[in-house]
């Protein structure tokens, strides 16, 4: 394996959790709910995923329990902001704090244990192809899942009735309600999907990226995923491109340090946020575009009158 091949491989593994979490949050935000608890759901997914794998002895069952962990936490969030009409920003931040605390508690017993790792795919001949073989055909399953998910989310949002209803709810919840679309139900499902994706992203960290449990191992990736959604202007395929750019930036800082390139690592870790700010500036230069791209009802509480 050549050096650049290794770099690309690590970029892919760095980008995958970002993409998974961003796709979930993108769907949630398209429905008009701002869930700032991505970091919290990810870390809970990471710990439940690791625990599930340790207890069952199967990395794939670990993946499922990561999904369940993220969903459980998002269900709590959905209850708060949708049924009880709590403030979304405050609830989301609380969710992150809750998730960080909860994961530390659950994970205490697992600190230092060697973990199970999701195996990389091996297809004879294809994986052995020079240059592209390992990159295209030698990844773990979730890498392909994340890419497929980006395409599926895009198809769902723009080519199905359900996706149309979801976008309608995020665009104008009062009108959607008048037309008979159940705003609360649509949003709850979107929040659960967001939680499942965040949990999966967390599970990827503890089962594929670095197969072990370390407290706080998400290290701010949830926030990068949130920034990524805005960077992608709520478009799934742009989110995929963004995830690989941001993943690249994350990996670059390690290699830059190793190569002795005199770039401060802080600058590189700030790069995703700077890129998001730049994207926001570019987007909002065109006010019309900014208005119709972003979900108009994002963060607004909806209480149907009866």
């Amino acid at each position: 394996m050549t050096g650049s091949e290794a770099v690309i491989l690590t970029i892919v593994t760095a980008a995958t959790p970002l993409l998974l979490a961003a796709l979930g949050e993108l769907v949630t935000e398209r429905s008009g709910v701002l869930n700032l608890g991505v970091e919290g759901m990810m870390i809970v997914g990471a710990v439940t995923g690791f625990a599930g794998a340790q207890l069952t002895g199967s990395a794939y069952l670990g993946v499922l329990s990561a999904v369940a962990g993220g969903m459980a936490l998002s269900g709590l969030f959905g209850l708060l902001v949708l049924r009880l009409a709590a403030n979304q920003v405050a609830s989301g931040l609380a969710l992150t704090l809750l998730g960080l605390g909860l994961s530390g508690m659950i994970g205490e017993a697992f600190i230092g244990q060697p973990g199970l790792k999701l195996e990389r795919l091996y297809i004879p001949v294809l994986t052995d192809l020079p240059v592209v073989g390992a990159i295209l055909f030698g990844q773990d399953l979730l890498v392909y899942v994340s890419a497929a998910l980006a395409v599926c989310v895009s198809r769902f949002l723009f080519h199905t009735r359900g996706g149309l209803a979801l976008r309608a709810v995020g665009n104008n919840h009062a009108s959607a309600h008048m037309l008979g679309v159940s705003v609360i139900r649509t949003r709850f499902l979107a929040v659960l999907f967001g939680g499942a994706c965040s949990g999966l992203a967390g599970g990827y960290l503890s089962l594929a990226y670095t197969p072990q449990w370390v407290e706080g191992m998400t290290a701010g990736r949830g926030w990068i995923a949130l920034a990524l959604v805005v960077f992608a202007s709520w478009m799934p395929l742009r989110a995929a491109i963004g995830a690989y750019l941001f993943g690249g930036a994350l990996i670059l800082q390690f290699h830059a340090q190793a190569e002795g390139i005199p770039l401060p690592p802080q600058f590189l870790s700030a790069l995703p946020y700077l890129a998001t700010v730049a994207a926001l500036v570019i987007l909002s230069r065109d006010r019309w575009r900014a208005r119709h791209d972003s979900p108009t009802c994002l963060g607004q509480v909806f209480v149907p009158d009866r």
Binding site: L164, R167, A168, S175, A176, D293, P295, T296
Partner: peptide, 22 residues
């Protein structure tokens, strides 16, 4: 059927999408 006073349209969607929803 109902035609609303303050329109119940979705700004971010196309004409056809607005109609499909109903």
């Amino acid at each position: 059927g109902m035609v609303f006073q303050h329109f119940s349209l979705f700004e971010g969607l196309t004409v056809a999408e607005n109609i499909a929803l109903a």
